[in-house]
């Protein structure tokens, strides 16, 4: 479904990604793990056109995304839940979800989608009239995911969805990710919480200083001694 071919990217003289190649098949949950600054977020910002590539190519359903502005990539069916959630704090919960449906003109579809999100995260229904800035961190994460789903993505990109959340909420979020995937959305999950990410994904890539150093089925990656030592906190 999505293919990165020899992608390089950087900010000025700093090279954030070097020759990254990865592939995501329809219906998969693929995780990209790595340390802080390894280039995980850059990869997602490359896919969504927020940061330009310096080399390589990204294909979505076989078509190149080169030069496409972010809003058209969203329209094509890729949605990113950015790191730090980036909800519109000055808008209400409902208005945030409406912004997700900005390109969707079918009202019945939007109502159905909103209902689905409220079922996934009942807390959002309770707080729909509230300014999004007043939500707790976990609720903001739910809103960020809900808002991304409103765009109607076939591929959902999640950047550190568990960051800064209490363990119980981390659990809720990962359950939701599984549920979203079961309902047919392909997912690329970027996480520092490698443990949970490997448990809740089919395949994994390990990114180190801008390059992919390992890839494989998540169980196999989780069993690798180097991964255990560097990312899972086991000796």
């Amino acid at each position: 479904m999505l293919e990165l071919r020899n992608v390089s990217s950087g900010y000025g003289a700093i090279e954030a990604l070097k020759d990254v190649t990865l592939r995501i098949g329809r219906g998969e949950i693929v995780t990209l793990i790595g340390a802080n600054g390894a280039g995980k977020s850059t990869t997602l910002r490359n896919i969504t056109g927020l940061v330009p590539l310096t080399a390589g190519e990204i294909l979505f359903d076989g078509k190149s995304l080169k030069g496409m502005p972010t809003h058209r990539i969203t329209a094509a069916g890729i949605s990113l839940v950015p790191e730090g959630r980036a909800i519109f704090a000055n808008l209400t919960v409902l208005e945030n979800l409406e912004m997700g449906a900005y390109l969707q003109r079918d009202r019945a579809r939007n109502a159905r989608e909103m209902d689905r999100i409220y079922t996934l995260f009942p807390r959002l229904r309770e707080r729909r009239k509230q300014a999004a800035g007043t939500l707790s961190g976990g609720e903001q994460q739910m809103l960020a995911i809900g808002r991304a789903l409103m765009t109607g993505p076939r591929l959902l990109l999640l950047d550190e969805p568990s960051l800064g959340l209490a363990p119980l909420l981390v659990h809720t979020i990962f359950q939701a990710i599984d549920a979203i995937n079961r309902e047919g959305t392909t997912i690329l999950l970027v996480e520092q919480n490698a443990n949970a990410a490997l448990k809740h994904s089919h395949r994994a890539y390990v990114l180190e200083t801008g390059s992919i150093v390992m890839e494989g089925p998540s169980q196999q990656v989780a069993g690798d001694p180097r991964v255990k030592e560097a990312y899972l906190g086991e000796a």
Binding site: T48, L50, P69, T70, H71, T74, A75, S79, L80, P82, A86, I87, F88, M99, G100, Y102, L103, R147, A148, T151
Partner: peptide
Amino acid sequence: DAAKLMGIN
């Protein structure tokens, strides 16, 4: 950036 991600031109 978040607005762009919503598909807003």
